[in-house]
Design a protein around this nucleic acid. Structure first.
Length: 802
RNA sequence: GCGGGUAUGGCGGAAUAGGUAGACGCAACGGACUUAAAAUCCGUCGGCAGCGAUGCCGUGCCGGUUCGAGUCCGGCUACCCGCACCA
């Protein structure tokens, strides 16, 4: 007698069995072929799991389960990216230690994830806030410091007025804090920095060796923003000084009719005496300084500026003197903070020249520079440019660069938009920076034996208005001795940003309990690189760039065996609310995965999230759709009643089986989970139509469906097939020859218009098919002559008539 | 402005290399079962015209290539996501 389908009882049952049998433990047998599948580890927030989390987790769980059935030693781990502001803010508000808050949130997340039946190897669980973990985060920082890639500098930082913390440029969105939305202001602060810019080229070039979806590669490249051009020295009239500029268009130098300095450019102060309108310049500079980055971009393209009267430069190509201006459209932080302005061929310069009546000289023919700047570099020939005249832009670029180098006036130069990484946070809940400041020795790294440098217990982890970390108030902890000279010294009180722990976590999974190293060389050599890494689009610039940077550095240090950490990177789309909007409490459209599990079961949730639509696109939640998936699983459950001992009763069904194995196998690989499930639904419909299913067919279906709905397929296996478990089975194989139908229906067209269909033997000769087609279409062929006959085997016959 | 993406029934979405548009699911409608309802099973389901076989139209818009275009090419429009004065 068939038992009813009750996820509530069978799901916990199987979760327990998997756990006891350690069914999904990655083994340390390094002779087997390995597969490392990775999903981004979550931040264990107080809200608990969101229905967005299961989408990527289920997708890679399917891949991981399939790989195990294919004989791989699979590593599919999970952990917690648990340092971070929300926990700290919650802790402050509720007077609970962030460590306790983290423990609670992790426990809840873990229980929720386990209720979904993921095949994570929980023995390898990691937590970035565990001293045994951040020991190695600090160790990597020391390595970076010793390699000269970590340095301290005073700089204006983005200061969130609400979080009271410095933010990286990347964390500021439209002048507001990415996290809390409060206003961000500029504030001077000394900060630890990481020289990610040293790795700009390696981070771009490394992309050629990996299999990332195109838009991820594009966004990595755009963020690094490599451009090639030249630096050129312009001399100042009546001075020995040179004013160095950067340009990507050295070919247009004959058209440079003025120069522009950033308002912060040091030349302005240096020549304050000579600048006749210094008052006006100072006033302009003050206005510019007050503008936040947000205002600068909001107020858009309306150009402002002041001429530095009394100061003129010499165009090295023409020998003519040109005026020097200052304007905030030139940024101190890019290039040299100064430009040569070529209004004929740069939109910004053109606008500026138009506004202030500066001369516009065309040096590349092809546009109308009275109407607009002509910026095309593909067409067009040089004019009004002395020895460059007649050259193409590309040739002119080479030619002028050689000329500049010969004359000692300039040189080729590559620039990047990428800036160094602001690495310190004035916060409590992060990894302490393992550096001591000694008045005699400067910044001294802690000896490695002293790691981990534990986060001290403090009474108050309230951020301070002074901008200092709460750790600064812990004098017992701050005051120490210099590891170098033994004299009194002070610890760094900043902590690391949340990005730190997530920049290397995939390495720790390979050997999570190692106390002597971040992971053993053997484990790293075997498991790395990650074979397939899936995560959100929101992490395709920062997290990916930072972790690739650290990994590449560790490779250069000989710590890891491969230059790139991730062989393949894919991204999933967001799950939106039922109304098509982003899920949020304020919109009231949040779906809680716990509710879905308790009402429909984990297998239904998993199936639904895979069936909802194309994996990489956003998809709106639909409760009706969830019901449909539950109904499908019920139909699978009831196949038990149709089991027959007959085997091979139908050649057509055998073909269907081979087709379905092929379709499901290849669709899983290309993340087309929705069509894989559709194929299984169709197969089940066929079983119902036949009114029966053989044991062989049923067990094949259970194996195919197991990665998606692991609990119910194990239960059905146990009740009806018996031997062993589905997770121990081999992935079903298909025979290509048997996927081909013997009889196929082909379309009949006249002049490309559908005029019917007919059934033919798949191998029928062309002549026979055409004859049959003409017979079928005889009524329509009267009085016309056939000009052309087209037969695409297995697809279509098209007769072209007149 | 630059870069990337998307556009197909009432809805979510299918459609390896250009070859039967709408697979699969949802909703809706009809039938069977039931005293009844739910559940389940079977069926219909792009639009217009027709009792009907059938005909015409139809994949955001305008053109093109082709025997044949959702798919390729040229030109647009709308929406979404990044970046945004980077010289």
């Amino acid at each position: 007698m068939m038992t009813p389908y009750e996820p509530k009882t069978i799901e916990p049952k199987w979760q327990k069995i998997w756990d006891e049998k350690k069914a999904f433990a990655a083994t340390d047998d390094y002779t087997k072929p390995k597969y490392y599948a990775l999903v981004e580890f979550p931040y264990p927030s107080g809200q608990g799991l969101h229905v967005g989390h299961p989408r990527p987790y289920t997708a890679l769980d399917i891949i991981a389960r399939k790989r195990r059935m294919e004989g791989y030693n699979v590593l599919y781990p999970m952990g917690w990216d648990a340092f971070g502001l929300p926990t700290e803010n919650y802790a402050i508000k509720n007077h609970i230690h962030p460590r306790i808050v983290t423990q609670r949130n992790v426990a809840r997340f873990k229980q929720q994830l386990q209720s979904l039946g993921y095949s994570f190897d929980w023995d390898r669980e990691i937590n970035t806030t565990d001293p045994n973990y951040y020991h190695w985060t600090q160790w990597i920082f020391l390595k970076l410091f010793k390699a000269g890639l970590a340095y301290k500098t005073e700089m204006p930082i983005n200061w969130c007025t609400s979080c009271k913390v410095g933010l990286a440029n990347e964390e500021v969105v439209n002048g507001r804090c990415e996290r809390c939305g409060a206003e961000v202001i500029r504030k001077m602060q000394t900060q630890w920095m990481l020289k990610i810019t040293n790795y700009a080229d390696k981070l771009i070039d490394g992309l050629d060796s990996v299999d990332f979806i195109e838009r991820v590669k594009v966004s990595q490249k755009n963020w690094i923003g490599r451009s090639t051009g030249a630096e050129v020295d312009f001399s100042i009239e009546d001075s020995e000084d040179k004013l160095r500029i950067y340009t990507t268009r050295p070919d247009t130098i004959f058209g440079a009719t003025y120069m522009v300095l950033s308002p912060e450019h040091p030349f302005i102060n240096k020549y304050a005496e000579r600048i006749q309108n210094m008052d006006e310049v100072i006033a302009y500079r003050e206005v510019a300084a007050k503008k936040s980055d947000f205002e600068r971009s909001e107020l858009a393209k309306d150009k402002t500026g002041v001429e530095l009267k009394g100061l003129r430069a010499v165009n090295p190509a023409t020998g003519e003197t040109i005026p020097i201006w200052t304007s905030d459209y030139v940024l101190m932080s890019y290039g040299t903070g100064a430009i040569m302005a070529v209004p004929a061929h740069d939109e910004r310069d053109w606008e500026f020249a138009k506004k202030f009546g500066l001369p516009i000289i065309e040096v590349v023919a092809g546009g109308n520079v009275d109407e607009a700047a002509f910026t095309d570099v593909q067409t067009g020939k040089m004019v009004n440019s002395g020895f460059l005249n007649g050259l193409e832009v590309a040739e002119a670029k080479k030619s002028i660069t050689v000329w500049l180098e010969e004359k000692g006036l300039g040189h080729a130069k590559t620039n990047y938009k990428l800036r160094d990484w602001v690495f310190s946070r004035q916060r409590y809940w992060g990894e302490p920076i393992p550096i001591v400041k000694c008045e005699h020795c400067g910044y001294v790294p802690l000896p490695e034996e002293e790691l981990p440098l534990l986060l001290p217990e403090v009474d108050s982890y309230m951020p301070t208005d002074t901008g200092e970390s709460p750790l600064a108030a812990m004098t017992d902890w701050v005051n120490t001795t210099c590891p170098c000279c033994g004299r009194p010294a002070k610890r760094a009180t900043d902590t690391m940003p949340q990005w730190a722990g997530s920049s290397w976590y995939f390495l720790r999974y390979t050997d999570p309990h190692n106390e002597k190293a971040l992971a053993s060389p053997e484990a790293l050599k075997y498991w790395m690189p990650v074979d397939w890494y899936n995560g959100g689009m929101e992490h395709t610039t920062l997290h990916l760039l930072y972790s690739r940077f650290w990994h590449r550095f560790l490779y250069d240090e000989g710590v890891v065996p491969c230059p790139e950490p991730y062989q393949k990177r894919t991204s999933h789309g967001m799950i939106l609310g039922e109304n098509g909007e982003k899920m949020s409490k304020s919109r009231g459209n949040v779906v809680n995965p716990d509710d879905i599990v308790s009402e429909f079961g984990a297998d239904t949730l998993r199936t639904y999230e895979m069936f909802i639509g194309a994996f990489e696109l956003a998809a709106a939640w639909s409760t009706e759709g969830v019901k449909g998936c539950r109904k499908f699983l019920e139909r699978v459950w009831k196949l038990q009643e149709m089991l027959t001992d007959e085997e091979g009763y139908s050649a057509a069904m055998e073909t269907r089986m081979h087709q379905t194995i092929k379709k499901v196998s290849s669709d899983f690989e290309s993340m087309k989970f929705n069509t894989a499930i559709a194929a299984m639904m169709s197969l089940v419909n066929d079983f119902y139509r036949a009114g029966k299913v053989t044991k062989g067919e049923f067990s094949t279906l259970l194996k195919l469906l197991n990665p998606v709905a692991p609990h119910m397929t194990e239960e059905l296996w146990e009740q009806n097939i018996g031997k062993g478990y589905v997770f121990e089975q081999s992935w079903p194989q298909y025979d290509e020859a048997k996927t081909v139908e013997q009889t196929v229906e082909i379309a009949l067209q006249i002049n490309g218009k559908m005029r019917g269909t007919m059934l033919i033997e798949k191998d029928a000769p062309k002549d026979e098919v055409l004859a049959k087609a003409k017979e079928a279409l005889a009524g329509r062929l009267e009085g016309v002559s056939i000009v052309k006959e087209i037969y695409i085997p297995g697809k279509i016959v098209n007769l072209v008539v007149r």
